[in-house]
Design a protein around this nucleic acid. Structure first.
Lengths: 231, 231
DNA sequence: TGGATTCCTAACGCATTCTTAACGCCGTTC
DNA sequence: GAACGGCGTTAAGAATGCGTTAGGAATCCA
């Protein structure tokens, strides 16, 4: 399952710098967006909600700090300032109105990309939802280690849970007994096919509507088991 | 009602640099803590849980990147690297193992303080959000380190509080015993699952209505513990 | 330095979970 | 149609893990 690449907005008036950074950013695997003025920068920030903003302070139409202030009124998107001004008061001013980092030109693209990774790391937590596996009335939250049947939580023992999630990982496909024993019991000697029968029965009792006629937890006689995914 | 000043841990072997930064940090209104070696730094980080860590990479007893890696196993405390090494590869390496910022010596104290403010801003995820965690009759003010049960304040020892807030940070999810031991005891060797049983029992006695039938502080046998969030 | 708090550790009883065995059912084979 | 193999079911003992208590060690603070 592929997540779209993070999008970077560059606000910079010098065409030469834009070309340079465009190559660096696209080479780094990011989606790239550019604005040549502060006004355009704000507009694009609203429209595209980039994941990181690179901001040159020396813009023709408005002061960079003003732009920061106006941006921070509604957005907490990480901003990395890139500037030719290396004076300490410039840095302090930018950081204190809400910038997250400050790079003085000239800088290496490697460092810039590393600092972008830091910014993305900061923005990330809480953005991602838990991946859910759903099937019929079942809802499995692998991150929470939680199994719901029709909204009702069902408690699974460690072995039951491992057996179940192993089948989920190979959903739709037949998993051989040998493979299940290896993945669930960890290749410990003495693991017998009998275990599978016992625990599959327990899973069916806890999860299936009619355990004697399993709808999803199906047996492939002589081979193994399979989690049926479609009706 | 005043919140205690943020605490900064400086890990730096040169006494001269320590003196200089101590003055700067205390002058900036921060509580100050120092370590002259990497080992001491890790120990103090575990014991005092500073809000920001300033780390010199050139330590005598261990490599700064190793320290970063070991710290990141259990903590997300912002780390600002201060280093005499200004090579780009040094910066990239440090940032990619988890550092949040990289300052090359010499630097101005004004810039350092501004970057500390940025780090503190990042660590406090909800300036506009609710710093309160509520669940049932519980109210936890993470900023003030205060726990209320039905309006009544309940005193927790440092370890109890850390264990509790660790579960809160992963609310709803199962936290494995290994992970809890790492995050609460700081990966110190000798931490045993027994500790968890003892402290979970204490937490339940202080927080749960019926400690023998916990409603929120739940055990996942063989796996870990979980703070239940929904009824 | 003394007192109080907090932490670590051991021991015991209880609950859950795992393992193992016995038995019944079903389909296939000879 | 009897024998066989594979599977499901149930139950009981064994093993493991968990909760609880308490006392001594370590630490902190005045």
């Amino acid at each position: 399952m592929s997540v779209p690449a993070p999008q970077i907005l560059l606000v910079e008036d010098e065409p030469q710098m834009r070309r340079f950074l465009r190559v660096a950013l696209e080479g780094g695997g990011y989606r790239y967006l550019e604005a040549a003025s502060g006004q355009e920068g704000l507009t694009l920030a609203v429209q595209h909600r980039p994941d990181v903003i690179l901001l040159d302070l020396g813009l023709p139409d408005m002061d960079g700090l003003d732009l920061m202030t106006r941006l921070r009124e509604w957005s907490r998107t990480p901003v990395i300032v890139i500037s030719a001004r290396g004076r300490e008061t410039d840095k302090i001013g930018a950081l204190d109105v809400g910038a997250d980092d400050y790079l003085t030109k000239p800088f290496g693209t490697g460092e810039l990309l590393a600092r972008i990774r830091v910014a993305l790391r900061h923005a990330d937590p809480g953005t991602a939802e838990d991946p859910l596996f759903t099937l019929g009335r079942w809802r499995v939250d692998l991150a929470r280690r939680q199994v719901l049947v029709g909204g009702q939580e069902v408690h699974l023992t460690p072995l039951e849970y491992r057996l179940f999630t192993t089948l989920i990982r190979h959903a739709g496909k037949v998993v051989t007994q040998r493979q299940l024993l290896k993945e669930v019991w960890g290749g410990v000697a003495g693991a017998q096919p009998l275990y599978l029968r016992v625990y599959m029965a327990q899973l069916r009792h806890k999860l299936e509507e009619d355990p004697s006629r399993p709808r999803y937890l199906q047996t492939e006689p002589g081979v193994g088991y399979r989690l049926r995914t479609e009706e």
